[in-house]
Design a protein around this nucleic acid. Structure first.
Lengths: 218, 218
DNA sequence: TATAAAAATAAGTGATTACTCACTTTTTAT
DNA sequence: ATAAAAAGTGAGTAATCACTTATTTTTATA
């Protein structure tokens, strides 16, 4: 957990147009992720973030004009990362260089998103919590994710539908169904984390459920 | 929307051991639901709740010792309502007097929960938002919902599995899969509310997805 | 109508909030 | 080595927070 957070943080550093972050700045970010995830944006006090980062409160406002800026600087690059696998065709040939079978596609998608969720639980929690209260966040999320990802996914799904591999439903409907199933798997596994969770079995059941649910033989 | 909120409020009044609520008290509750849903618990100021209820701020604290009490008085009876259809056998013969077919069961469950969600969107939003930050809420929710509802559902699912109507998976796994699909339908319909949403078509696709997904003919 | 109880109020309370600013320390460039 | 720039500090700001209390208004009962 700590490793993946650190890794994410470092990736965030590099994003900042070559400008390296200072040690204190990265500690502020780390503490902010922690406190935002624990108490939510409104419940998180900048004083506590400063304290946990081992930094004077004024230092926060030297780097981030407002508390909201701090939130955005955490969430915004994450949203970008969220879309990445759907737009970087050479890194992830998931969409544009598709698997021959729908099953292979689903399995790859599942693996890909599970790995991503594993690395970003805390930021995902923050995003889910705060999107309802920040119209700008919601707008950015919807415009980027909805417009870009949904279009890419629609194309892929349409491709398998045309081949007769899956049932004849609107692509958006199928994306909702598969997305729900995938999302439910992730929520139950990472947020509820039930005892006695047999992951290989659950994952296989999930894949089979999707495949049969969208099988063209009605 | 306003009708259902009023109806829910009246049901809440009757719950209070015969003690009728004053007019101002119910207006406080109504305003609190509104503001909590809009800004979240931490972001909601008691001053704004009072203002929107057309009431002095002190009046809130005459009826509710703390702000947290106000939140609980809204959410607690809702959690009870959430479980009701699974424990009141005579009102909802959904579980204990089951449908002969799994398909009938799923359709009834879907209709039942959609109607419930339709009537309680705002309180559902509050519950989803605040459960992560209030251990007592989470504990009550998990102990009541998880223990009572999951047991009932497991029995029902086990019944259909024994009859060979559905695939041979652990009941909890199947509940997760069906629950995810149902939840995804509700979220997309009520929270995203996409334009051009053909509800009968979406609902039928959802039912078919579940039925084929759990069909025993693998 | 008289009176006691309950409900409601308005003006506070100290604590905490996000944020500022004058100042010191550290880093960088020449 | 030195000066300019950047980073960091912590005391202080007004505003807002949840909550209290003394007082007034409303309601119920006789």
């Amino acid at each position: 957990m700590k490793d993946s957070l650190e890794q994410w943080l470092e990736e965030l550093l590099e994003k900042h147009e070559g400008e390296r972050m200072t040690d204190k700045q990265s500690r502020i970010l780390r503490a902010a992720v922690e406190v935002f995830a624990e108490k939510g944006y409104s419940g998180a006090a900048t004083s506590e973030i400063a304290q946990r980062a081992g930094v004077a409160e004024g230092t926060i406002f030297r780097h981030y004009r407002t508390k909201k800026d701090l939130l955005y600087s955490i969430v915004a690059p994450f949203v970008a990362k969220l879309i990445e696998p759907f737009v970087l065709r050479d890194l992830y040939p998931l969409i544009d260089n598709p698997h021959p079978t729908f099953e292979g596609f689903i399995r790859a998608l599942l693996d890909n998103r599970i790995a991503f969720a594993e690395k970003n639980i805390k930021v995902i929690k923050i995003l889910l919590q705060e999107v309802p209260f920040h119209p700008e966040l919601r707008e950015q999320f919807l415009s980027k994710v909805a417009e870009r990802v949904l279009v890419k996914l629609s194309n892929a799904v349409y491709h398998y539908r045309k081949q007769g591999q899956i049932v004849d439903l609107p692509p958006l409907t199928m994306i909702r169904l598969v997305g729900s199933t995938l999302f439910g798997y992730l929520i139950v596994r990472f947020l509820f984390a039930p005892s006695g969770w047999d992951d290989t079995q659950e994952r296989e059941a999930t894949v089979q459920y999707i495949l049969h649910g969208l099988n063209r033989k009605n």
